[in-house]
Amino acid sequence: MKDILTIIFRLTVACLLAGLVMGVAFIATNKAKKHNIHVNEQKVMLSLLGYSAKNPAPETVAMHEVYRYLVGEGEDLAMGYLLPLRDGSFSFVTIDLAGTFVAQAPVAITAEKATEAEERTLAIGAAIGAGKAIRYADQTIVVTNNGKRTAYLLPGRFPGFKTFISAILALDPNFSILGLEIMEHEEDPGLGGEIVQNYFKKQFKGKSLETVKKLEVVKTPLPDEYRKALEAEKNGLGAEEVAGIQEQYKDNDIYALTGATISSRSVTNGVKAMVKKFAYRLAILDRVLVEQHIATSF
């Protein structure tokens, strides 16, 4: 009996100590980590839009973040969008699943605070009143240049081979894919991990909504000239040549990675679902915005 007590006591102390160490490390590093992630996301988003350190985005380019929520009231479920308005304030627009406008409520929140999930949830909760449960779904970034929409950035998550893959997808106003970047994944190194390589992820570039809807994965080997075009950064192929080859393969299916068909298929299906759902939802949202004369900033 005495042994049991000592064992319990020592193990508890060990766990508490370990917890303390990890807790301190977490508090000390969390801010820097979040900052890194944010900086990295910004960098990736700009590079997907074709901007880099050498070719910085002009000042007329602006990014408008739209947050989508699921709003539940009793049995009913609806979509809620937190939209930035032209005058700098925010509004929460609720649309039911059939696509009809339900309500609009001004949200008292500043642009800086809107990026923080907790602040956002609190402010929205206060705006729409009690009795409604809201759950964060996803976010979309509408990119405008001189007030005209030039692209949509969709950060998303979809199931991979073992666990979720998070990625950012860039679409042009016609929902053709501008680019895909894998942000986080735990696929097998050397096999499924190859999804981060240009010769895989760049295959999505230029695919139109119509192509994406029917997109499949084929197990034939990647043609050499296509691979060269996809890896143009590495072998210095001319921009025109690359564009020519990409045009030629534009409507083809995705060539699977050797030994990682499941990972290839997961990414393809994930992208497919993201594009299809986004195009559908945006059409509804835009129609509602026009009908209700809501002046958003994008």
Binding site: L11, A14, A18, V21, M22, A25, F26, K31
Partner: peptide, 20 residues
């Protein structure tokens, strides 16, 4: 269990420090 706990703690700490 104590060894495992020690290893897990260090792995977590190193993971967080590197990420930051």
């Amino acid at each position: 269990p104590t060894y495992t706990l020690t290893i897990a703690t260090w792995v977590t700490v190193i993971d967080m420090v590197l990420a930051a």
